[in-house]
């Protein structure tokens, strides 16, 4: 699956019905229609607002979704991965996940990629989340209790990660 650099016309891809920051962001079943969509910022020149130290790498698959490596740390060569897929593009989850990790490790030469996973929320269409993540090379690293308010209660999240170069 080919990732492409962000263009202003891709803005609609950057908001949607996934959980904020979710590693594999797919539409959440049963989400109230008036719940505010999750959003990620469009890529922009960090010099514009004087921000320093934050470097995001965001690419898109036109019409399907985005891949964001947030807060890329070029010294320690790590980043937090989040993916957002439009409704109807769920079938692209597996190749997009692999393309994202390939980009992180083979193009950006990162050592570590990690992301948030929310086990309480099933993936749509019965997609096997754990198998998808493990097949892509990710492994569960930590449980974080009460990490997210969701559906009237706090729920736990997990950190899943992948490393390269030993």
């Amino acid at each position: 699956m080919m990732l492409r650099g962000y263009r202003d016309s891709d803005l609609p891809l950057l908001s949607g019905d996934w959980l904020p920051g979710e590693l594999l962001g797919l539409p959440v079943p049963g989400r109230p229609p008036l719940a505010e969509p999750a959003r990620v910022p469009a890529p922009r020149d960090p010099a514009e607002d004087g921000a320093t130290g934050e470097d995001d790498e965001l690419c898109v698959v036109p019409g399907a979704g985005f891949v964001r490596l947030a807060a890329v740390d070029w010294v320690h060569r790590r980043a937090r991965l989040e993916i957002g897929l439009r409704p109807g593009a769920e079938g692209g989850a597996e190749p997009l996940l692999k393309a994202a990790l390939d980009h992180a490790f083979r193009a950006l030469n990162l050592r570590r990629v990690f992301g948030w996973v929310t086990p309480a929320v099933p993936l749509p269409s019965g997609l096997p989340r754990d198998a998808l993540l493990r097949d892509a090379g990710l492994a569960p690293e930590a449980d974080v209790p009460r990490a997210l308010w969701l559906d009237g209660r706090p729920v736990a999240r997990q950190i899943w990660g992948a490393t390269r170069h030993g």
Partner: peptide, 19 residues
């Protein structure tokens, strides 16, 4: 959008518009 359009970058096709 061409993967080897290496003009002042080594990763042309994944660069965002501002870059």
């Amino acid at each position: 959008t061409e993967p080897d359009f290496y003009f002042r970058t080594h990763r042309p096709d994944t660069r965002p518009q501002w870059e």
